[in-house]
Simulated assay, not measured.
Amino acid sequence: MKKLLYVLFLVTIVSCGKSSEEISLSQEVDSLKTEITALHRANDTLSDHLLKRSYVTLNYPAFFDSIAEPEEYILQELQQRPGLISKKAVLGGTMRFTRVTFINEDLLVAEFEDGHIMGKTVFRYRLTRNGELGFTNVCDIEY
């Protein structure tokens, strides 16, 4: 009888442990949690860089080779399109673009203000074969 109880006790203890599948899944979950943490950290770092204007690049797209000041050229193009500004002017002001900074050959940040409020928008831009610039709002940067 004592031997039977001893065997049942051992079987119960052994069966309480995690199976290899459970251990594998637990390790995968831990790995994914670590990856999510790293991605959150990278996202926060990118947001900080964007807000501090650390995204400046001097690698202009090849189609700007013939333009002396690409930022100024794009700023003038944007100033002719105030409808691209997502915020509305307040207290009788008029929204206008004030600064452009390239992120890369596809994206730029355009700053705007009306004298009372200001904002930034990330635009995707393209130069067509006939020399016209096209802009697509990617996102607004909130302060």
Rank of each mutant, 00 (worst) to 15 (best):
E28R: 10
E28N: 09
D30L: 08
D30C: 09
S31A: 15
S31P: 00
T34Q: 05
E35L: 08
E35A: 08
I36P: 05
I36A: 12
T37R: 12
T37E: 13
A38P: 01
L39V: 12
L39I: 14
L39H: 08
H40S: 03
H40L: 08
N43A: 14
N43V: 03
D44R: 10
L46P: 01
D48C: 05
D48T: 13
D48V: 01
H49F: 02
H49N: 04
H49I: 05
L50R: 07
L50G: 02
K52L: 13
K52G: 02
K52W: 04
R53Y: 06
R53E: 12
S54P: 00
Y55A: 02
T57I: 11
T57M: 09
P61D: 12
P61R: 13
A62S: 13
A62N: 10
F63N: 05
F63Y: 15
F64D: 00
D65E: 14
D65H: 14
S66I: 14
S66V: 13
I67V: 15
I67K: 06
A68L: 13
A68I: 08
E71I: 03
E72C: 13
E72R: 11
E72S: 12
E72I: 11
E72A: 12
Y73F: 14
I74Y: 06
L75C: 12
L75F: 06
L75S: 03
E77W: 00
E77V: 04
L78Q: 05
L78F: 05
Q79D: 07
Q79S: 10
Q80I: 02
Q80M: 07
Q80E: 15
R81N: 09
P82E: 14
P82R: 05
G83T: 06
L84C: 11
L84W: 01
L84K: 05
I85Y: 01
I85T: 03
S86N: 09
K88Q: 13
K88A: 14
A89L: 07
V90R: 02
L91C: 11
L91H: 10
L91K: 15
T94D: 09
M95Q: 09
M95R: 01
R96K: 14
R96E: 11
R96D: 04
T98M: 03
R99S: 07
R99W: 06
R99T: 07
T101P: 00
T101V: 15
I103N: 00
I103Y: 01
D106F: 08
D106E: 12
D106W: 10
D106V: 15
L107C: 01
L107A: 00
L107S: 00
L107F: 07
L107D: 01
L108D: 03
L108T: 01
L108I: 05
V109F: 04
A110M: 05
A110L: 13
A110Q: 08
